[in-house]
Design a protein around this nucleic acid. Structure first.
Lengths: 149, 149
DNA sequence: TATTGTTATACTCTATAACTATA
DNA sequence: TATAGTTATAGAGTATAACAATA
């Protein structure tokens, strides 16, 4: 665990540097908490990610790879391991017999629910902020990410 | 690549949910850009992280493991690979002959400099924000993270 | 005895390339 | 021929357990 990086930015003003460092801290915390929550259910971070994705709706393997930004060949093994534990099922697509749709089972969806409960990143640190502050944070993050709205 | 997670938070209000999603987007972007910048220098994310760490000051292997929040046995291989490329050196500690200090070489530090230049996460999206907005963002992130200051 | 770094082992994730079955 | 999923392979990161050297 732990793939994060504290990298000062040369040429930037101290304020920008501090903001970048704070974002790094948020990223680190987000990851740690996610991996921990996943581990509590004997899942890796990637497995938890795929399971959450498939709990919303069944997806062709290829789509899962796109979402994860990895090669399709990798999805085979990840879904294999989830399927072996009864959390995910593969079924052929009615439209195209080449396609397999992967979807969460009942138990898979239940696991995702418990996973969400473990993941207190949302409630805990954000709990410090008032509604006005959350709104301000939302607007700043939107602008940072170039979200049009 | 890609270990990130879009997880709605049940029970939370829409504003909180959106903020969590935005943070998820920032985390995803941060990771992608970091991995990309590392790959441009034929480094993995973890290697770039360790190299940056050691470019500041030499550290005992054990300390590197603590910073990365992983088992010390893993650091051996990571430093081996960096050392094989001449980016890092091991030398015995003068204080304790059990300890090995890992430090970046001249070339290692040069690589870290180039890495930083590639990593435009700081300048680009933050460039959208005025000084006042950056200050506001800094204060909100500080409060979120419980930074005392 | 305890600690530091290493080795050995096994598992997961990753990219690449080749294969199969469909289209 | 093109596409979806798989298999095979190799490399990297990870945790666990056992080991040598040193404290």
């Amino acid at each position: 665990m732990g793939i994060l990086m504290p990298m000062a930015t040369p040429g930037a003003d101290p304020l920008t540097i501090e903001v970048v460092e704070l974002i790094g801290a948020v990223v680190a915390r987000y990851h740690e908490e996610y991996e921990e929550a996943a581990a509590q259910h004997a899942l890796t971070g990637v497995q938890a990610r795929v399971l959450s994705l498939l709990s919303l709706e069944p997806l062709p393997m290829r789509r899962v790879a796109e979402r994860l930004k990895c090669e399709p060949s990798n999805i085979t093994g990840i879904v294999d391991r989830l399927e072996a534990r009864g959390l995910v099922e593969r079924r052929p697509s009615p439209d195209d017999r080449r396609v397999k749709l992967a979807g969460a089972t009942e138990e898979g969806r239940a696991t995702v629910c418990r996973l969400r409960t473990s993941l207190d990143f949302a409630r805990e640190p954000l709990g410090e902020l008032s509604t006005e502050e959350r709104t301000a944070l939302r607007d700043l993050l939107r602008r940072m990410l170039g979200t049009r709205d």
